[in-house]
Amino acid sequence: MVTFVITEFAHARLMAAEPDLDNERNKVRYIAVPDGLSEDDARNDEADPMFGWALEIAEMLKLKLAIFWTSAPGVLALILNIPKLIEDGIIDAKGSSKIDGKVQLSTDLPPLTSADFLWNYSGKQSGETNFQYFSGIQRNMKRCGWLLCNCMGVPFLCWPYFADQFYNRSCICNGYKVGLALSPDEYGIVTRHEIRRKLDSLVADDGIRANALKLKEMALQSISEGGSSAKNLDNFISQMKQ
């Protein structure tokens, strides 16, 4: 039996679309929990919730743990490296940057600056509050032995406004070079003319197209039989069966 912990709002939408999903004959069950919002609150500007505390409950009940990670690998690396960033004097205990340069978390990832720290762009709460939240996620994720990342390389036109989207822009435009970033004018507005200019440039850029196709090929190889993602998924399924 596999148990999914999701919000009551998401559970209601899921059951409305597929009522038979919540049937234990399928060897899957859903536990719905409140998301802290009232019924009248809008949820279309919410980030995907990370229920780190659910891992603590699973560990207490001696259940096998798994996290399905849908954000960029660089964001995962950033969260997992929070203790080391503090230890190395790159950030303080409140998440504030103590350096002006770039940080290289891995040779496989583009470097990041303090402007890429996702806790600086996480809604109306203060950066320190958001940092403590992500620090809690990091502590809980250490309990999990399997982390699955879902990614795909395609050309992008980037217009970030929240959390990890700013580092995603850096990866897409400066690291992997598979997209372009929209730039606001002197009033902070991204105009339709800017969108049109960047879209025309994106379509006409052979280098970006070639890089996107290269990433697509790498992704297809990874999920094909014998690829790294395919092997990881097979190993994950084997562990779940034990």
Rank of each mutant, 00 (worst) to 15 (best):
L65W: 01
F131S: 10
R169Q: 13
A12G: 02
K84H: 01
L213V: 07
F68A: 03
S228H: 07
T7V: 06
E56R: 13
T191M: 05
P110T: 12
P19V: 05
Q125T: 14
F51G: 00
L78P: 03
Y167I: 08
T70P: 13
D20F: 00
L180R: 10
I208N: 05
A10H: 12
M152H: 01
Y167K: 03
C158Q: 07
K84R: 15
L182R: 04
K84I: 08
V154Q: 03
L105E: 05
A54S: 13
D22H: 09
P34H: 08
L182S: 12
E56M: 01
K94A: 10
E217F: 01
I189Q: 08
E217M: 01
Y30D: 00
F134M: 13
S183N: 11
R143C: 02
S228A: 12
L157I: 14
E18I: 07
I237A: 14
G145Q: 09
Q165L: 11
S228D: 12
K214G: 03
V2S: 06
L233G: 02
A32G: 14
S106F: 02
P49S: 12
P184V: 09
S71N: 14
G175R: 08
K98C: 12
D205G: 02
P83K: 03
E46T: 11
D234F: 01
H193G: 07
L118Y: 04
V203K: 12
D88S: 11
C173Q: 09
N130S: 15
V178Y: 00
L105T: 15
P73K: 06
Q242H: 05
D205N: 15
F68E: 04
V2H: 10
K142W: 01
G127Q: 11
K198Y: 01
P184S: 13
L202Y: 04
T191D: 05
L55K: 00
G89P: 03
G226F: 11
I189V: 15
V33G: 03
I57R: 11
L213A: 15
P111V: 08
Q125S: 12
S71M: 14
E225V: 11
A12E: 14
A219R: 05
L118I: 14
L233A: 14
A230Y: 04
D48Y: 10
R192C: 06
D206Y: 00
K64P: 00
R197A: 04
K177N: 11
L63G: 00
W146T: 04
L37K: 11
S126L: 04
K214M: 07
P34M: 08
L105S: 13
D234I: 00
V75M: 15
Q165F: 07
I86N: 02
D185W: 02
R25H: 08
K216Q: 10
P155T: 10
G179S: 09
E56C: 05
E225W: 00
R192Y: 02
K64S: 06
F162V: 14
D234K: 12
T129C: 00
G227T: 01
E46Q: 12
M15C: 05
